[in-house]
Simulated assay, not measured.
Amino acid sequence: MNLSHGILPDHLNAIAAVLFALGLALALWRAPWGYLREERNLHVFLGACVALMLMWTVRGMTIPGLGYHYFGATLLTLMFGWQLALLGISVVLVGTVLNHSGDWLSLPVNGLVMGALPIAVSHFLWRFSERRLPNNYFVYVFVCAYFGAAFAFLAAALAASGLLLVGTHPNPEQLFSEFFPLVFLMAFPEAFITGFVISLLAVYRPAWVRTFADERYIKGK
């Protein structure tokens, strides 16, 4: 949910900036920098960021001030872990601003809505799957990727809607009449793209997916 500048009051933008800065600082502190020191892994990470940046240029507008495009937060979380996923989303956000597809003032709140929140949901579902569900390839793909991406999108959609309701959106009724009826429909492409890519990577390039292990999910099954 890409929120435009001016939709939220200044105090909410300030709170979002503080929260996003704290989350980014934690990600920088906990990030597995040794993983990125390998040239292959660095190329995969940067390539994923560039690909996601290109996908973010394809966007739709459901209501004024609230745009939609593929997030990719769940995909980055499963591929690189939550720390690098948040850093990757931040890189993509900066790239969209430099490409004149966003603005600096709305970057923190968009980083929270499209980055930190869906990443947290995706990480929680992955950890839940690891601890509570059978170690199976299809469980990983469907629960962590397909459903993870769908739930992450829905969480971001609800968060964006809540911010608009307490912000300066001129017509809250428009959310219920034009946006909410499309939320579940818009969650489908997020889930499909993420699940499709992860299912292929887990089979053909498992080394590119840090949260996936052949020994755990495939071998002996």
Rank of each mutant, 00 (worst) to 15 (best):
L24T: 12
A25R: 14
L26H: 03
L26N: 06
A27D: 03
L28C: 15
A31S: 10
P32R: 10
W33S: 09
L36H: 08
E39Y: 03
E39I: 04
N41E: 14
N41C: 12
L42D: 14
L42F: 15
H43P: 13
V44H: 12
F45K: 05
L46T: 09
C49P: 08
V50T: 15
L52P: 03
M53C: 12
M53K: 01
W56T: 03
W56C: 05
G60H: 10
M61G: 12
P64F: 13
G65Y: 01
G67E: 09
H69Q: 07
Y70P: 05
Y70F: 14
F71D: 00
G72L: 14
A73K: 02
T74A: 11
G81F: 13
Q83T: 06
A85F: 11
I89A: 05
I89Y: 04
I89E: 04
I89G: 01
S90E: 10
L93E: 10
N99P: 00
H100Y: 08
G102A: 03
L105H: 05
P108F: 06
P108A: 10
G111F: 07
G111R: 06
G111M: 13
M114W: 00
L117P: 00
P118I: 02
I119Q: 03
A120F: 14
A120I: 09
V121P: 01
H123Q: 15
H123A: 15
F124V: 04
L125P: 01
W126F: 15
F128S: 05
S129F: 03
R132F: 10
N136D: 10
F138R: 03
F138S: 04
V139N: 08
F142E: 02
A145I: 02
Y146P: 07
F147P: 00
F151R: 00
A152N: 09
F153W: 06
L154T: 01
L154F: 09
L154H: 01
A156Y: 00
A157R: 00
A160N: 05
A160S: 14
S161C: 09
S161R: 05
L163D: 02
L165S: 14
